[in-house]
Amino acid sequence: MKHIVPAPVRKLGPLQIVLLAIPCVAVLVVPFYNRVEPTLFGIPFLYWWLCMWAPLSSVMIALVYKMITATSPE
């Protein structure tokens, strides 16, 4: 079996954990997003808010990935 030597990865620090927690909190604060207005292209707030966090969670994960794999420390 071919052995892949992984690049060193830094541990998640408080900043990284906060970044990953943001989308999680955003989709769980039901009292905040359980409303119709403001609508976007006719879509009630609840629906576009939740869908919006799918791409935004991608962005957060990408940021954290860059931080923990970057060769020079921030």
């Binding site: 998640l12 954990i17 990953l20 927690a21 989308p23 999680c24 989709v27 769980l28 359980n34 609840l46 629906y47 939740l50 869908c51 966090w53 799918a54 969670s57 991608s58 957060m60 994960i61 954290v64 990935y65």
Partner: peptide, 20 residues
Amino acid sequence: GAFGFFAVPYTVLVYPLAFS
């Protein structure tokens, strides 16, 4: 209705959790 939409927050939660 809206209750069925729990599937979206559910899948948004999965990847930050998995990543960590």
